[in-house]
């Protein structure tokens, strides 16, 4: 059954706001966001972000699945997957000079909301925008915790290898 993207995005934003602000907001606040950031349907296999491109927006995944790959000297390698409620490309919003660090494709048919910095600026007093920012805060916290753990493990693995040599 085909999911109506507008309906799915409206439910998503109401859910996001209830989750983070613990209140139900007026439809008008949700509609304001959807008018400026209409849901984007992404067919399976379609590239949504390309490594090296200028970064100008984050993507909120309403439903579906995206996968990220990085082109390195050793070739293309997959570095992660993201599903509904996840965010990709979030560093674009508060470090706009950083190019995209990975290429992101739809692993299956997906729906996303594109969040440019301008949406945050124009919607400063919209509670749905506040909920989106709080969601980004949780996403960055989770990512930074994973990265810090990765650094600790990488240092430990490296030290262990050197100790064995």
């Amino acid at each position: 059954m085909r999911i109506n993207p507008q309906h799915a995005a409206r439910l998503y934003l109401h859910g996001l706001t209830s989750l983070h602000l613990r209140e139900r907001v007026d439809d008008a606040h949700v509609d304001w966001v959807l008018q400026r950031s209409p849901p984007v349907e992404v067919p399976a296999g379609h590239v949504v972000l390309r490594q090296g491109d200028p970064a100008d927006a984050a993507l909120l995944i309403v439903h579906g699945e995206l996968c990220a790959t990085v082109h390195a000297e050793s070739g293309e390698r997959e570095v992660g997957a993201a599903g509904a409620w996840d965010v990709v490309g979030e560093t674009a919003l508060f470090a706009p000079t950083q190019p995209r660090s990975a290429t992101v494709r739809a692993a299956r048919d997906s729906t996303c909301l594109r969040v440019p910095r301008a949406l945050l600026e124009e919607g400063r007093e919209n509670p749905v925008v506040a909920a989106i920012e709080y969601h980004l805060l949780h996403t960055l916290t989770h990512r930074l915790r994973s990265t810090n753990q990765g650094i600790v493990e990488a240092m430990a693995e490296g030290a262990a290898r050197r100790g064995e040599a």
């Binding site: 560093t91 506040a130 916290t141």
Partner: peptide, 24 residues
């Protein structure tokens, strides 16, 4: 953190900026 006044906006965005730099 849940507010839409100047304090909430400043708090969220200050934290988002610092965490983004730390993540990069």
């Amino acid at each position: 953190i849940r507010g839409t006044d100047g304090r909430g906006i400043a708090l969220r965005r200050l934290m988002l900026t610092v965490l983004t730099r730390q993540l990069i």
